[in-house]
Simulated scan of single mutants.
Amino acid sequence: MNFERPTRRTANGFDTFDLAVDLLVDAGLDHYEWKDEDEYAHVRRLGIITDTEHRAVDAAREETLGMLASRTGVFADADRWATWRWNQAWPTPHLPGPAEAAEGAASTSG
């Protein structure tokens, strides 16, 4: 689970800001560990994450661990994602090449 500021829409697309700390949870939800605590402490020391934001992150951590313990929220269907597999009949997705992207943009612009 990635802890980040809310995504914001801008004139150029979307702004995201990773808060450096992550929660790694095994597929069976039996074990978890915090990742990048040292990076989080460093950005705190630099003042990039304010005291107010740090309190919000701590509250979100507690809320997340509560959902993990009760198997609710994002963890409610963990048994389904632990067994999920790509359907071999699905076509492999691909990004359009530059010419395809330009043609698509031209046909939708007007």
Rank of each mutant, 00 (worst) to 15 (best):
D22V: 04
E103G: 02
A101R: 15
H42D: 13
T64Y: 09
A41R: 14
R85K: 15
G66V: 02
G97M: 03
T64M: 14
D36A: 03
Q88D: 15
F17G: 02
F75S: 03
A106V: 13
G110E: 14
W34C: 00
T72L: 00
D36L: 05
A106K: 14
L95N: 09
K35W: 09
D77I: 02
A60F: 09
R80L: 13
K35L: 12
M1W: 11
L29W: 05
L68N: 04
A76E: 13
L24F: 10
P98T: 00
N87K: 13
A78V: 01
R61K: 12
H31E: 15
R55I: 06
L95Y: 13
A78W: 15
D58G: 00
D18M: 02
R71F: 02
R44G: 03
I49D: 06
A102D: 14
T72D: 01
E39P: 02
E63I: 04
G73S: 13
G13R: 10
P93N: 06
Y32T: 03
L19E: 09
P98D: 01
H54M: 04
I48Q: 07
T16C: 09
W81M: 08
L29S: 07
P93Y: 08
D77R: 13
H94Y: 11
Y40I: 02
V57K: 03
F3A: 04
L19F: 07
E63S: 08
R80Y: 07
V43N: 00
R80I: 06
D38Y: 03
P93S: 01
I48V: 07
E63T: 07
M1A: 13
E63D: 10
A41Q: 14
E53G: 00
E63N: 08
R44F: 02
E62I: 06
A102E: 15
E33H: 10
V43H: 01
L24K: 11
R71C: 06
R9S: 13
